[in-house]
Computed example of a mutant assay.
Amino acid sequence: MKKVVTFGEIMLRLATPDYLRFCQATEFTATFGGGEANVAVSLANYGLKPEFVTRVPKNDIAESCLKELHKYGVGTSHVVYGGDRLGIYFLETGAVARPSKVVYDRAYSAIAEIKPGMIDWEQVLAGADWFHWTGITPALSQGAADVCLEAIKAANKMGITVSTDLNFRKNLWKYGKTASEVMPALVEGCDVILGNEEDAEKVFGIKPEGFDVTATGGKVQAAEFESVCKQLMQRFPRAKKVIITLRGSINANHNTWAGVLWDGKQLFQSPSYDITHIVDRVGGGDSFMGGLIYGLLTYTGDDQKALNFAVAASCLKHTIYGDFNMVTVAEVENLMKGDGSGRVSR
Rank of each mutant, 00 (worst) to 15 (best):
K3N: 05
V4R: 07
V4A: 04
V5T: 06
M11E: 04
D18W: 02
L20V: 01
Q24C: 03
Q24N: 08
E27H: 14
G33D: 11
G34T: 07
G34Y: 12
E36M: 10
N38A: 13
V41M: 03
V41K: 11
S42M: 11
N45S: 11
K49Q: 14
T54D: 04
P57I: 07
N59L: 01
N59P: 02
E63I: 04
S64I: 01
S64M: 14
L69E: 10
Y72F: 15
G73C: 03
V74E: 07
S77N: 14
S77Y: 13
H78L: 05
V79Y: 08
G83A: 06
D84P: 10
R85Q: 02
L86S: 02
L86T: 10
Y89R: 09
T93D: 02
A97W: 14
A97S: 15
V102N: 06
R106S: 02
I111D: 02
E113Q: 15
I114M: 15
I114R: 03
K115E: 14
W121M: 02
E122T: 09
A126T: 10
A128L: 09
D129E: 06
F131I: 09
H132V: 10
T137L: 08
G143F: 12
V147Q: 06
V147C: 09
L149W: 08
I152P: 06
K153Q: 15
G159V: 04
T164L: 10
D165K: 11
N167G: 13
F168Q: 11
N171F: 11
Y175R: 04
G176W: 05
E181T: 05
E181D: 09
V187R: 06
G189Q: 07
D191A: 02
D191H: 14
V192E: 03
E201F: 14
K202R: 14
F204L: 04
I206A: 01
P208K: 02
T214P: 00
A215S: 09
T216P: 06
V220T: 02
F225L: 01
V228M: 13
C229T: 11
R235C: 02
R235P: 00
P237K: 06
K241N: 11
K241L: 15
V242Q: 11
I243C: 14
N253H: 04
V260W: 00
L261N: 12
L261Q: 10
F268Q: 12
T276D: 02
V282G: 14
G283S: 01
F288W: 03
F288S: 03
G290L: 08
G291W: 05
I293D: 05
L296I: 12
T298C: 00
G301Q: 11
D302R: 09
Q304F: 05
Q304V: 10
K305Q: 13
L307T: 07
V311R: 00
C315N: 07
C315Y: 11
L316W: 08
F324R: 13
M326G: 10
V329L: 09
E331A: 12
V332M: 01
L335Y: 08
M336I: 05
K337R: 15
G338H: 07
